[in-house]
């Protein structure tokens, strides 16, 4: 039995496969634990990527915080 590659399964789960290939892949997944595990790994990768995206956004926002000139304490009225 030929197993699907990581990229095949990426195309499968993202709807980048044609109908026949998709049906064939779904049938294979039902009976192949190796490919099911690979698909599960891809889902775990999605969780890691979500964490990375959140961290990047949070730190990017913090890095954009501007140093404010200290004029307020001298009064401005």
């Amino acid at each position: 039995m030929r197993h699907y590659t990581t990229e095949d399964l990426d195309r499968y789960r993202n709807g980048d496969m044609n109908m026949l290939s998709r049906i064939s892949c779904a049938g294979h997944l039902k009976q192949c634990e190796v490919c099911r595990n690979l698909l599960e790994t891809l889902k775990q990768d999605d969780i890691l990527l979500e964490t990375v995206r959140k961290s990047i956004a949070r730190f990017h926002a913090a890095s954009k915080e501007q140093v404010k000139p200290k004029l307020a304490s001298h009064g401005n009225h």
């Binding site: 964490t51 990375v52 959140k54 961290s55 990047i56 949070r58 730190f59």
Partner: peptide, 8 residues
């Protein structure tokens, strides 16, 4: 989060 940013 810092480690992830450094890793990227």
């Amino acid at each position: 989060g810092h480690l992830l940013n450094m890793a990227m």
